[in-house]
Simulated assay, not measured.
Amino acid sequence: MGLLDSLKGLFSGAEGSDKGAEQQQAYEEQSIDYEGFHITPAPIKTGSSYRVAATITKGEKEHHLIRADEMPSLQDCIEISLRKSKQMIDQQGEGLFESR
């Protein structure tokens, strides 16, 4: 399953959407506020591992962070997703939301 398939499954109403909704709620519970931004981890299941990913928001602005890094543990992936998000905020600040 490729990255695009993973993203499609994450955002579509595909089979298992109840499980996806439960998982999203679990991620929401682990969300944090950092430097005026809101970070929600959103690991992407890829086979037997999880790809580092998160959603960073500030007001109406939203940025989807997706990294190539994969972790065997969901909890490790969540922690790294939060850490990488903080790092991006520290480095880019509001520039996260600019089109490139």
Rank of each mutant, 00 (worst) to 15 (best):
M1V: 04
G2L: 07
L3R: 11
L3M: 11
L4F: 13
D5E: 15
S6Q: 12
K8H: 09
L10Y: 10
F11E: 07
S12F: 05
S12K: 05
G13I: 03
G13V: 05
G13C: 08
A14Q: 12
A14S: 12
E15W: 05
E15N: 14
G16M: 04
G16F: 04
S17H: 12
S17R: 14
G20H: 09
G20Q: 12
G20A: 15
A21H: 08
A21R: 15
Q23L: 13
Q23N: 07
Q24I: 13
Q24L: 13
Q24F: 12
Q25I: 04
Q25D: 11
A26D: 11
A26H: 05
E28V: 08
E28M: 11
E28D: 11
E28T: 10
E29A: 14
E29I: 01
Q30H: 08
S31Y: 01
S31Q: 05
D33T: 07
D33Y: 01
Y34G: 05
E35K: 15
E35R: 14
G36Y: 04
G36T: 04
F37K: 06
H38G: 07
H38Q: 11
H38F: 06
H38R: 14
I39E: 00
I39S: 00
T40M: 15
T40N: 03
T40F: 01
P41G: 06
P41F: 00
A42W: 03
A42Q: 11
P43N: 03
P43Y: 01
P43V: 02
I44T: 03
K45M: 05
K45Y: 00
T46C: 03
T46A: 13
G47R: 06
Y50D: 02
R51T: 10
R51M: 14
V52F: 01
V52P: 05
T55G: 12
T55D: 11
T55K: 13
I56K: 09
T57G: 07
K58I: 02
G59C: 03
E60R: 12
E60S: 13
K61R: 15
H63N: 14
H63W: 10
H63D: 08
H63F: 15
H64T: 14
H64D: 08
H64G: 07
H64R: 15
H64M: 14
I66K: 02
A68L: 10
D69V: 09
D69N: 10
D69M: 10
E70A: 08
E70L: 13
E70D: 13
P72G: 10
P72T: 09
S73C: 11
L74Y: 09
L74G: 03
Q75V: 05
D76F: 01
D76V: 11
C77I: 05
I78W: 02
I78A: 00
E79I: 01
I80N: 02
I80A: 08
S81L: 02
S81E: 03
L82C: 00
L82T: 09
K84G: 00
S85Y: 02
K86T: 08
Q87K: 14
Q87E: 12
Q87G: 06
M88P: 02
D90G: 02
D90H: 08
Q91I: 06
Q92P: 00
G93V: 01
G93Y: 00
E94P: 05
G95W: 08
G95C: 11
L96K: 09
L96R: 03
F97P: 06
F97K: 07
E98K: 15
E98Y: 08
S99F: 05
R100P: 15
